[in-house]
Amino acid sequence: MKRRLTIAIPGGERSKAYPIELLRRAGLTIPDLSGSRSLKHDLEQVTLLEVKDADVPVYVDIGVADCGIVGKDWIMESGRDVYEPLDLGGPAYRLSLIRLRGATGRIERVASKYARIARGVIQSKGMAADVLPLNGKLELAVTVGLVDAILDVVQTGRTLEDNGLEETEVLHKLSMRLIVNRAALKLKVPTIRELIHRLEP
């Protein structure tokens, strides 16, 4: 039995480009969606939902979307119980602990937009530090002394350099992943297996 799939991808012109490119490569017909303000696209073979990165795992876990394409960072941060069958590559980036260049003092406060991951890292390292959840421009938080370190994604590291910061530890190598709802994988076996097969790098 073939069933139509609903796929959640990060919205926004820049974020959705790579997932759409992947889906096109997998053989889906997707028209040019740039400039479209619609968040739900009923296309020929699938329905696409444009949501915030952080929300892709939520839509998939609850089952409103059958699968999703999103960065590993947001999958980890969500803690959602979903299948994660494929590493889809994409622009390489990493999750790192970042400090002022040359800083050696004790870390007592860490700012991050990934509060859950940050707490996990602190716990697993046996550090006694508090997490300050912030939403962006984290470089500033450490520069002005709001925190002793930040935990953030790094692509080239240039912004860090410009702000007098350095990566003291790379914690995870990150990439885009395919995630799949637990019930959907079972109920739509042929359709999803085919998608997985076609997306396989």
Partner: peptide
């Protein structure tokens, strides 16, 4: 047990 178009057992 799963039912079609509902994402949870």
């Amino acid at each position: 047990a799963y039912t079609p178009d509902f994402g949870q057992p």
